[in-house]
Amino acid sequence: MFDAYAVNTLVYHPELCNGCAMCTAVCPHAVFEMNGRKARLVSPQACMECGACQLNCVTDAITVESGVGCAAAMIRAALRGQKEATCDCS
């Protein structure tokens, strides 16, 4: 059966990893784990695309499309023909 959450935009390049372990510190869903001196992507499907890992990775080894992920904001943006959804709903 179709699972909307089976894919996401998280991409990790282990060859760029410098072993700082920041990704393991900032991730709220244990997507990364340290494996010796490199990070390892252990739970990619648990990624909620918050972008904390990307922002805190000095070597740009991680990319992900983070942004406003709330359905109401995305539907509103689509109806108004805006490219990006914004958070200003209150």
């Binding site: 959450y5 996401n8 904001a73």
Partner: peptide, 15 residues
């Protein structure tokens, strides 16, 4: 949008 685990990609695919 009120949960702690749904991804933007997943929500878009649902939409």
């Amino acid at each position: 949008g009120s949960t702690t685990f749904t991804s933007r990609t997943g929500v878009r695919r649902e939409i």
